[in-house]
């Protein structure tokens, strides 16, 4: 059933990585991604891999969980790898019919797969170790300079946290509506695409009606609790950079600098 879908993918824990400020983690992910794209040769990839491995060990997140996140991307990864193998010019290793495999092609493909994997695992590591609500707070805080440009940062963050709050409720509701329509003989499993799409109407209409009703009631409830936009709001949990955050950011800077240097030497 729908209920079994895990959402937010957060694995609660109390490691150094878990305790880092969400803003630090967001910034580190950006630095890490930039560094990955600057990697040129085995040495720099090796450094990035070592960095990721250290974080994984510190976070105590099991490798299995990380690889599970890669699964849905497998086809895309394989597809780009194959394209790269066949469509890169260079020293020919094997040639048959219209296909030609080059040494450069193989190396390119290898780096590409490695890069995607490192990238995905790195970002997943952040969502695995940061609660969605902390991530939202972190984003709001990082983006707050944009408020001066009239960018609705607070509203965006509020929307995100309300969405997080209501996703499980709406999933449960969808389950209930599906059961109720099935009890009236609705058939969602047979027929062509057109018929199946039409069979969704008895689910979607009640779902939307209910979502609007909920939104309406929630808006009133929020007003009753003195919500009047982001102005003058305080927070239960204030984000504060600590020593470990400063250290992490320094480490991030070293990583980026290191990779740039390596790139300079073609490593």
């Amino acid at each position: 059933m729908l209920k079994d879908i895990t959402l937010g993918q957060y694995f609660p824990g109390d490691t150094v990585i878990h305790r880092l400020d969400p803003r630090t983690k967001l910034l580190m992910v950006i630095v890490y991604i930039v560094a990955l794209f600057l990697c040129k040769w085995f040495v720099s990839y090796g450094v990035a891999l070592a960095f990721l491995a250290t974080v994984i060990i510190l976070s105590k997140i099991r490798l299995k969980a990380l690889f599970k996140g890669l699964k849905p991307l497998l086809i895309i990864i394989l597809f780009t790898a194959v394209l790269n193998i066949f469509y890169t010019d260079g020293t020919v290793l094997v040639e048959f019919w219209i296909f030609r495999i080059t040494r450069e092609g193989l190396i390119n493909a290898f780096f590409l797969v490695l890069r995607i994997m490192l990238l995905v695992m790195g970002t997943f590591l952040m969502t695995y170790t940061t609660s969605p609500i902390a991530l939202t707070d972190g984003l709001e805080s990082l983006l707050s300079p944009l408020k001066k440009l009239r960018f609705p940062v607070h509203e965006l963050a509020m929307m995100m946290s309300i969405a997080l709050r209501f996703i499980p409720t709406l999933i449960e509701e969808t389950d209930k509506i599906i059961s109720a329509q099935k009890a009236r003989g609705a058939d969602f499993e047979t027929g062509n695409i057109f018929r199946r799409a039409k069979a969704l109407i008895p689910i979607l209409v009640p779902l939307f009606v209910s979502a609007f009703r909920r939104a309406d009631e929630l808006a009133t409830a929020m007003e009753c609790r003195c919500y009047h936009g982001g102005k003058g709001r305080t927070k239960l949990k204030q984000l504060r950079y600590r020593r470990r955050d400063v250290l992490s950011l320094l480490l991030g800077a070293v990583l980026l600098g290191g990779i740039i240097t390596l790139r300079h030497f073609g490593l």
């Binding site: 609500i133 946290s161 309300i162 997080l164 709050r165 909920r214 409830a221 239960l236």
Partner: peptide, 13 residues
């Protein structure tokens, strides 16, 4: 409806 008056996905928040 208690579901429609809760804003955050952690009780204390």
């Amino acid at each position: 409806n208690p579901d429609n008056q809760m804003v955050a996905n952690v009780v204390e928040e």
